[in-house]
Design a protein around this nucleic acid. Structure first.
Lengths: 100, 100
DNA sequence: GCTTACGGTAAGTAATGACTTACGAAGAAT
DNA sequence: ATTCTTCGTAAGTCATTACTTACCGTAAGC
């Protein structure tokens, strides 16, 4: 569960769409698959990547697994970007000083 | 210059390293290439992707191009993640209510 | 019991993309 | 003027990965 994994997980367009869907409403794999033009195993594989990144988590409910979004992976990613943001603003300010 | 581009740009490990390097200190393509085990054209291609995403920008200086990090692309990405963060926290809270 | 629904995993394929070398254009230096 | 540096781009190669179909285990329904 690192920010690298979250970054790689959200980079793929369809996987990002799946994540956004889960973000808005949790559901079983079959439910989630309904809205996408790819096969159910493909969705399952995407959910595994999202799960490894800490972006979603599954709760077993009888025969089905309910996937829902978790804050963990996203929090890590936001923290990393905040660090970058600080560096960028710092260097950006320094570049102005040099130009004067 | 969309958040999708920034996401895809930062997903690749070596490209992310290049970006972080530029973040800390601006420099020419040759300068940046010094620290990496890949060819100069490869670095150039990575810089193009970063540039298209609005993460870096080049300033022509005679024969050389000085690349530096720009806030634009990173700002878009952070904004997108903030939107996601809100959705995730909202759904996360609702899931607690349901369990009680 | 048997069958049906759910979902993870294996294996194979096709597309994407990260790299290489080769080349060409444009400015600096001698 | 020509030589050298800088850097972008084209073309080709190799690895990664997103997808497919096929299969298996497990729980629910009849």
């Amino acid at each position: 569960m690192t920010y690298e994994e979250s970054l790689a997980a959200l980079a793929d367009p369809t996987r990002r769409q799946i994540y956004e869907h889960v973000t808005r409403s949790a559901g079983s794999v079959a439910d989630i698959s309904k809205g996408f033009p790819i096969s159910r195993p493909a969705v399952s594989q995407h959910l595994k990547v999202l799960s490894d990144a800490g972006l979603v988590a599954a709760k077993q409910q009888g025969n089905r697994r309910i996937y829902r979004a978790t804050p963990d992976g996203l929090a890590e990613l936001r923290q990393y970007l905040d660090r970058l943001w600080g560096d960028v603003l710092g260097e950006f300010a320094k570049s102005f000083e040099k130009e004067l």
